[in-house]
Design a binder for these strands. Sequence first.
DNA 1: TGCTTGATCTGGTCTGACCAGATTGGTAGG
DNA 2: CCTACCAATCTGGTCAGACCAGATCAAGCA
Lengths: 244, 244
Amino acid sequence: MTPPLNSETSHTVRKTLEFVQHHRLAKGDRLPSERELSERFGVARSSVREALAVLDAMRITERRPKSGIYLRNAVEDGGLEALVLQADLGLTFDPQVTRDVTEARIICEEQALRLACQRRTDADLSKLHQTLHAYASTIQAGGDMAEADVQFHLALVAAGQNRILVRTLTPLMLMSRRWRERYFESEAIRHRSLADHRDFVAAIEARDEAAAATLVRRHVETAAADVRALAEQGGAAASQTNTT
Amino acid sequence: MTPPLNSETSHTVRKTLEFVQHHRLAKGDRLPSERELSERFGVARSSVREALAVLDAMRITERRPKSGIYLRNAVEDGGLEALVLQADLGLTFDPQVTRDVTEARIICEEQALRLACQRRTDADLSKLHQTLHAYASTIQAGGDMAEADVQFHLALVAAGQNRILVRTLTPLMLMSRRWRERYFESEAIRHRSLADHRDFVAAIEARDEAAAATLVRRHVETAAADVRALAEQGGAAASQTNTT
DNA sequence: TGCTTGATCTGGTCTGACCAGATTGGTAGG
DNA sequence: CCTACCAATCTGGTCAGACCAGATCAAGCA
């Protein structure tokens, strides 16, 4: 459900991003020609072009006719969609990005939840209970917690009746999907998370803005801290990338 | 500076989106095959594929191997980047989207400005003054106000030291670029806007969070109301799209 | 009626070709 | 020795056509 790209295109996009990272290319630098990339990656030029069309649309690269392919921004400085793509591809970013994502999530989600308290309909409420139930089931069944978590938070935000806010938060959620996968390996965390989610729904049901706001902050901040701890402890191997 | 896509790819993307709109395709509906699209649009299949790669990456379409191309979401329900693309292409959306964008902008921008008040450096401040000056010059020279406005607001947000928030707000800004173009045709509005911007910088310089917050709300809400009035008055022709 | 089978359609990928500018290297002229 | 000009080369943009392997579905056989 997550991978948006075709196998080969996705593969080539990944290869290209890796190339950029590996060669420490900076904004304005020129990439090898399409023909050379296709040779280097062992795919046809048409495949390279598809990947470049995607990178272009994401404003990561810029193709200048008769000239070459240039890096529009550093890999870490594209659009949000670009970040999601990188997260999907398993590329990591520096800690500052993680902190910024957390902060942005708290900001957007807190306000969204306030709106949800004001505007939620009974339909939203039953949807929330349903999603909450699905969440609990996923814990029982040992299913995809990261996915269930994303779905729950998005349902929460959706109750705020602002589709743009939902779209804004979606990439922020998807971005931390990878981290969450490891995060939910702990049973204690899974259950604490479920308890938090119950509180969320209760707050929205009671239209208690203050409670909801406090909950988000604590929930997201705690989760972020845990993930950070996990990253430092478990995976020095997976934690570094270029920081210019 | 805005158009991110190559001529032909952009052209085909536009044609495809128009096709979807014209035929009132809904989520899950199937588009014509690549071969038929290429024939219909009068371009090679490879060009269609590039466009589809972009639409795929934006999660607007989904290509199922050996099956067909399907609409992942209604055109109005893609990612933020997709909305920007549509705005760039001159496609309009329903009023609810406009309202949601305004609300989301206020939420994100208010919090970003609060952060800016706390964290802005002297470098940020001089950058802001510089951007403000450029803004005033653009008014004098009769330049691209929409662009200058976007740049100013992004500089404002950037002072909050959260790159993710900047990236979040960028599409929201770009999205309303079209509307802004007409908006800034009024001289009165141009000057009121400049005055507002001066106040913004002053508030951030004084680290006055409350003032900054009040300013954003009033500034964005007023602008949105004006644009709405303009849309209702001037262009019934340009205001409707499908609302399902 | 029900099941099998093969023609057809679809996206995925590759090869190779041509175009028109941009770039660049070398050579002819000063 | 240096300058100026021109042609070979390189680049992205686009097109045409081909093959593959599943998916689909209708026709035909049991």
